[in-house]
Computed example of a mutant assay.
Amino acid sequence: LTKEKPLRSLQDHVIEKPLGTGPFTLFEHKKGAYIHMQKNSYFFGKGQKIGNHLLGPYVDSLLFRIYGTSDVAILALKKGDIDYYWGDIQPGYIKDLKEQVNIDLYFNKKSALYYLGFNLRRAPFNDKVLRQAVATVIDKEFILTRILQNFGTPMHSVVPSGNHFWYNPKVRKYGQGLDHDQRIKLAHEMLKEAGYSWDTPPVTEGGNVVTPSDILLPSGEKMEKFVILTPPADYDPKRAFAGTMVQEWVRELGLPASARPMAFSSLLDTVKGKHEFDAFILGYGKLNLDPDYLRSFFYSKNDKPRGWNMSGYHNPEFDKIARAQMSLIDTGKRKELIWKMQEMILEDIPYLPLYNPHIIEATFNERFTGWVAKVDGIGNVWSMCVVKPAQ
């Protein structure tokens, strides 16, 4: 605390021997290779029945091995070198794993949000109508069937639909129920009414959808090329593919878009740290069930370097409601405000929710049993407490 920047010094301090109070504590860690944890003999829950589970742990240690690629990790699982693949298995592996008698697959919902974010601080996405038109042409059914291969759900609000109490089903749902040509025609009308134009518009006077020329801004100037940043395919193929498809869909309106994969750490720094972007596809893989994260993501004061308001959304009315819901004890009244916040976000679209994937996991079933399925998968503290050696 005597240093010039005590908080930064504390944050940067390397913890070599972390303490833990859970069922396991750290024994050894080799960066990029493995984490070895041993049973905590002082674990408070041992022998207690909590949540209908008689807690252990029933194994002496856990070894988390780190693999460079999914292919290598899946092969290790099939060979029995590991007992559990802790991560989201891509749908392409499922058919093969289903044929393995010693592999059990688990499909669980996630409390997650994967979305298209816009930079509201600069052109072209400082125009709400443009953001709404982009939202209209995105085919979420394609994302569900082709990208997620039906292992997930389309998202229409920034609160997952599985969060039944807080989810607002009445938010504006862009393009829902429309086919491809209907989405193009509706988006074209929205943009035309807002002053955008084309030398060759995407919809002819006869109502046919055609390949358009580059879109012209209300000022008459050509729209500058913009970039949709995504994680690379080897990090998350779903988000990378979604970015490519968004690029193609908006080009059908004459928008000069390009999807660009970027190393994940650089992507976060560009979007969250520097705010030097046009649009991006990211996700929150594990949202809290309490929706106060809406305030964090879209509160005006959080629009700062490394702040949570990455899109630069400013709405005094939203800020007022966001502050008010924090102090409400009456859940019914708070629900009304949370629903209103969702409606405002889906009208203004700093983020466009895209999808919520299921989490797909697998275990080697010959040595251990008792995995506990929950929202966000079987890799939870309950599993760590009750998994036992197979009889």
Rank of each mutant, 00 (worst) to 15 (best):
K3D: 13
L10Q: 15
K17V: 06
L19C: 08
G20Y: 02
F24N: 11
H29N: 12
G32Y: 00
A33W: 08
Y34S: 14
M37W: 05
K39Y: 02
N40R: 07
F44T: 09
K46C: 09
G47F: 07
G47W: 05
G51R: 03
G51D: 10
G56T: 07
D60Q: 09
S61P: 02
R65K: 15
I66R: 12
Y67N: 11
A73M: 13
D81K: 12
I89S: 15
K95W: 05
D96K: 15
K98M: 11
L105K: 07
A112W: 01
L113E: 11
Y115H: 14
N126W: 00
A135V: 01
V137Y: 01
K140Y: 00
P154D: 14
V159T: 11
S161T: 06
K170P: 00
R172G: 02
K173M: 10
Y174P: 02
I184N: 03
K185V: 01
H188Q: 08
L191I: 04
L191T: 14
L191Q: 11
S197T: 15
D199R: 11
P202R: 12
P202K: 07
E205L: 10
L217Q: 15
E221L: 09
E224S: 14
K225T: 00
F226W: 14
V227N: 03
D236T: 01
D236C: 07
R239H: 02
G243F: 03
T244K: 10
V246G: 07
W249P: 01
R251K: 12
P256D: 06
S258E: 13
S266L: 14
S266Y: 07
L268T: 13
H275N: 09
L289V: 05
Y293R: 09
F297T: 00
F297R: 09
K301Y: 11
K304E: 15
R306Y: 13
W308R: 15
M310I: 11
E317W: 08
D319H: 07
K320I: 06
K333T: 11
E336G: 06
Q342I: 01
P353W: 02
N356C: 13
N356L: 07
P357C: 06
I359L: 12
T369C: 08
V372L: 05
V372F: 11
K374D: 14
V375Q: 08
S383W: 08
M384L: 14
C385T: 10
